[in-house]
C-alpha cells in the first residue's frame, strides 16, 4: 500500500498544556481495516491525542487528514463544524471508556442504537427497531432487553451496547478509549473477542487507546508507545511487545507481561 491509500494521515500533531497530559510531534498513517493501538501510562498524552484525532479537541499544531468515502482528503480541524459533526455521525464512531459518556442513559437500548439511524433520516419505526434487534444480537445482548434502559445493564452489556450504537450505520473509522477499562477479566475477554470479530467483519479502521498491553496484543495490528507526550516507539504489535527497543517500552512490557 502507498501513503495515498491511508484513511487517516497524521502529521506533527501537538497539543500542549502547562502540566502533564499534552502530546507533541505525533505523525502516523492509518490504513483501512487496520487497528492501531496507542499504549502508555496515564498522563502520557494518549487520551489527549485521541481527542485531537477524533476532532473533539483542536491541536495547537499539525494536521489530521481523513479520506472521505469519495476519496477526497479532508483536513479534520479545518472542516466547518457542520461537516465535522456530520462526519462524526456517519463515518466515525467513538467508544468511550465510561459507557455513560457514550450512551443516553435515560432512553431504551433500542433508542440508543436507533439514534444514529434517525439522525440521518430513518423514519420507519419498524425498520429502526429491526436494525436495533439485529445489532443487539450481533453484540450478544438478549433481544428482549431492547426496551430496557442502559442503567439496568451490567458494565459489560453497557459497553457492548455502546459499540452497537456506534456501528449501526456502518462507520469506517472508530476511536476507542480504554474500551475494556473497569471491566472484570472474564467480561473483558468476551468483549475483546467481540470487538475483534466486528472489526474484521466490517473492515473497520480503529484507533484504540489503552494502558493494558494484553488488550493491545489481542486487538492491535500495530502499536505506538507514548511517554511524556511523545511517541517513543512504534511498530507491529508482536514486534514491539516481544522485542522492545526503547528502555521505557522494555520496562512497560516486563512489568505488565510477566512470563
Amino acid at each position: 500500500m502507498s501513503e495515498m491509500d491511508a484513511i487517516l494521515s497524521v502529521r506533527d500533531v501537538a497539543k500542549l498544556y502547562g502540566g502533564r497530559g499534552g502530546c507533541k510531534e505525533v505523525s502516523f498513517d492509518l490504513w483501512p481495516g487496520e487497528v492501531l493501538g496507542i499504549v502508555g501510562e496515564s498522563g502520557s498524552g494518549k487520551t489527549t491525542l485521541l481527542d485531537c484525532l477524533s476532532g473533539r479537541r483542536t491541536p495547537d499544531a499539525g494536521r489530521i487528514m481523513y479520506r472521505g468515502r469519495d476519496g477526497e482528503m479532508l483536513d479534520v480541524h479545518a472542516l466547518s463544524e457542520p461537516r465535522r459533526r456530520l462526519l462524526m455521525r456517519t463515518d466515525w464512531g467513538i467508544v468511550h471508556q465510561n459507557p455513560r459518556d457514550g450512551l443516553r442513559m435515560g432512553v431504551s437500548a433500542g433508542a440508543n442504537i436507533g439514534e444514529r439511524l434517525m439522525a440521518v433520516g430513518a423514519r420507519h419505526y419498524g425498520q429502526i427497531r429491526g436494525s436495533a434487534n439485529d445489532w443487539l444480537e450481533r453484540v450478544e445482548i438478549d433481544e428482549n432487553r431492547i426496551d430496557d434502559r442502559p442503567m439496568t445493564f451490567s458494565g459489560g452489556m453497557q459497553q457492548r451496547l455502546q459499540i452497537a450504537r456506534n456501528l449501526v450505520n456502518g462507520p469506517r473509522l472508530v476511536f476507542m478509549d480504554e474500551p475494556t477499562g473497569g471491566l472484570d477479566v472474564s467480561v473483558q475477554a468476551r468483549l475483546l473477542d467481540l470487538l475483534r470479530r466486528l472489526v474484521r467483519e466490517m473492515h473497520l479502521a480503529c484507533i484504540i487507546v489503552t494502558h493494558d498491553l494484553g488488550v493491545a496484543r489481542l486487538l492491535a495490528h500495530r502499536l505506538m508507545v507514548m511517554k511524556d507526550g511523545r511517541v517513543i516507539e512504534e511498530g507491529l504489535t508482536d514486534q514491539v511487545l516481544d522485542d522492545p527497543h526503547h528502555p521505557y517500552t522494555q520496562l512497560l512490557v516486563s512489568s505488565v507481561l510477566p512470563a
Binding site: R85, L86, A111
Partner: peptide, 22 residues
Amino acid sequence: RKMHALAEYGVMHVKLYEDIAR
C-alpha cells in the same frame, strides 16, 4: 442552537421512538 443551525434533529425522533417502544 447548534442543533438547529445544523438541522441535527435525530434526537426528536429518539423521543418519539421511545414513546412507541414504551
